[in-house]
Structure formats: structure tokens, C-alpha cells
């Protein structure tokens, strides 16, 4: 195991639940490099339910593995009472944008100083491959066998619209960019949102793409990501990078002048 894994992973929780070639594993790997630099002792983690939400459980830290969709609400309560800690949420496209959508947009609106990392693998992976608000239109999944009739959310636009003050997107094909972006996100004062598109060979692979080899699904993901701003997007592609940075809007604060009586 690599030295950061040996140092920072919770042995009792291993092996990870990630399938062979799961992008979430690369995200975990990249996150440890950021934590090593920023200092793990400064962090508290909250997650919901799903494959992505298992990520912080594998880290040797204080972790609240909560309910489906509720991680952002739990993180809000935790951050308000421990404002000096960096509170980081890991969740997935279903957890954050379906059942958790309301909590997500309100925390963004409040500009609560937490970082939400949403691992988007276009599907509900843990439950076996059902359509999620991240699933591309016309995709075959277990609950859209004739092709999904719904457009997915653009999570970046959703976050910006809701008031998030740091918004970025990367993919699990770019581990170095993930580490750099996460560092910027956790150091930003205000609501930071990082969407990481992550390959799911097992569920998204088999259902949406009809392939299951990790390298095939990895290549599809890598080739969908466009980092240069002036390049035109082809069908199925998306942009990566930092989309929004607002350091003017005040962070949510309860500092008020109240005379004690």
C-alpha cells in the first residue's frame, strides 16, 4: 500500500468497497495527498449513503456516515458548532441532487463554510444501477430500460445558481488536478462545491455503456473531459476547471451585536 494509505487509512475499515477500477478509489488516493498537505487533524468528515459516501469512512478521522441525502444538513450543524474545523462532505449524484437536493441548495445559499465533494458516476451504483439526476438523457439503466426520459442536472450550474462561492469540476482521470482543486476548495472561505466525474465500470459501464472493463469506461470519461476554455464541446463532453470563485460574498456567520441580559 502506498505510504499515504498506510498513514491515513483506517485499517479496520479495509478493504475498500470499491469495485476494480472504480474512480472513487482514485479520488480517495488524490484526497489523501491533499489531506497530507493541509493537515488531516483539521478535518471532520460527513457523508451520506452510496458508494461515494464510503470514501471518508476509510480515512482515520472523525467521520459521520449519515442518512441518504442528509450529509449536508448534518455538516451544517457540525460546522456551526466547530467553526475552526474544515468540514468536508463526500456524496454522490443521487445523494446530493435527488434526495439531498434541498439541503444542498440551501447550504449553498447560506454560504456555509463547508466543502461538498460530489462524486458523479451518472447512476445509483450501490443499489445496482438505477437512473439518477446525473444520468445522461436516453441512457439505459435498471429503472430506464427504454432509455431515460430525463435530462440530468448540470451540478455546476445548480451550485452557482444556488449561491455557492467556489465551484469546480474535475474527473477521476486527472488525479493531480483533483488534489490541487480540493486544496483550493477546502481553503476557500465559504460554500465550496467540487463535482468529480468518476467512472463506474460495474453499473454505469454495464448499463449505460454496455461495457464493463475499467479501462474502457475510464477512456470514455477521460475523453469526455475538456479543460481548455475555448475548445468547442462535442456531444457527450463537458468542461472541467474552476467555474466560479467569489471571495466577496460574506461567509455565513452568526456574529451579531447582542447585549447579554
Amino acid at each position: 500500500m502506498n505510504p499515504l494509505g498506510k498513514k491515513y487509512l483506517r485499517k479496520e475499515a479495509l478493504p475498500t468497497i470499491f469495485c476494480p477500477g472504480c474512480g472513487h478509489g482514485t479520488v480517495l488516493n488524490s484526497t489523501l495527498r491533499m489531506l497530507d498537505k493541509v493537515g488531516l487533524e483539521n478535518f471532520l468528515f460527513v457523508s451520506g449513503i452510496g458508494c461515494s459516501s464510503w470514501l471518508p469512512v476509510f480515512i482515520k478521522a472523525d467521520v459521520l456516515h449519515t442518512l441518504h441525502g442528509r450529509a449536508v444538513a448534518v455538516a451544517t450543524g457540525l460546522k456551526l458548532v466547530q467553526p475552526d474545523k474544515k468540514v468536508m462532505v463526500f456524496n454522490g449524484d443521487g445523494d446530493n441532487m435527488a434526495i439531498g437536493g434541498n439541503h444542498f441548495i440551501h447550504a449553498a445559499r447560506r454560504n456555509i463554510d463547508i466543502t461538498v465533494v460530489m462524486l458523479n458516476n451518472y447512476i445509483y451504483g450501490m443499489t445496482g444501477g438505477q437512473a439518477s439526476p446525473g444520468t445522461p438523457l436516453n441512457s439505459k439503466t435498471k429503472t430506464s430500460p427504454y432509455g431515460s426520459h430525463e435530462k440530468p442536472f448540470d451540478a455546476v450550474k445548480l451550485a452557482i445558481g444556488a449561491g455557492a462561492t467556489f465551484v469546480a469540476r474535475e474527473t477521476s482521470a486527472s488525479p493531480i488536478k483533483i488534489t490541487r482543486t480540493l486544496e483550493k476548495a477546502v481553503n476557500h472561505r465559504g460554500f465550496s462545491f467540487v463535482e468529480i466525474m468518476s467512472q463506474c465500470p460495474t453499473q454505469a459501464g454495464r448499463n449505460i455503456y454496455g461495457k464493463s472493463a475499467p479501462s474502457d469506461i475510464f477512456r470514455i470519461l477521460r475523453d469526455s473531459a475538456v479543460s481548455k476554455k475555448d475548445t468547442e464541446l462535442l456531444q457527450g463532453q463537458f468542461r472541467t476547471g474552476i467555474f466560479h470563485l467569489d471571495e466577496e460574498t460574506p461567509v455565513y456567520s452568526q456574529k451579531i451585536e447582542v447585549a447579554a441580559s
Binding site: 459521520l64 442518512l67 444538513a73 448534518v74 451544517t76 450543524g77 457540525l78 466547530q82 434541498n102 439541503h103
Partner: peptide, 17 residues
């Protein structure tokens, strides 16, 4: 909070805090 779901869940965060 934005609803009662958020309310009870933020209590959980505050309690562990």
C-alpha cells in the same frame, strides 16, 4: 433550516460536535 429533515439532521451534527 429549510425543512424538518434538515432540522433533525443538523441536530445530529451539533450533538457530535
Amino acid at each position: 433550516m429549510e425543512d424538518e429533515l434538515a432540522s433533525i439532521n443538523s441536530l445530529i451534527g451539533a450533538a457530535w460536535g
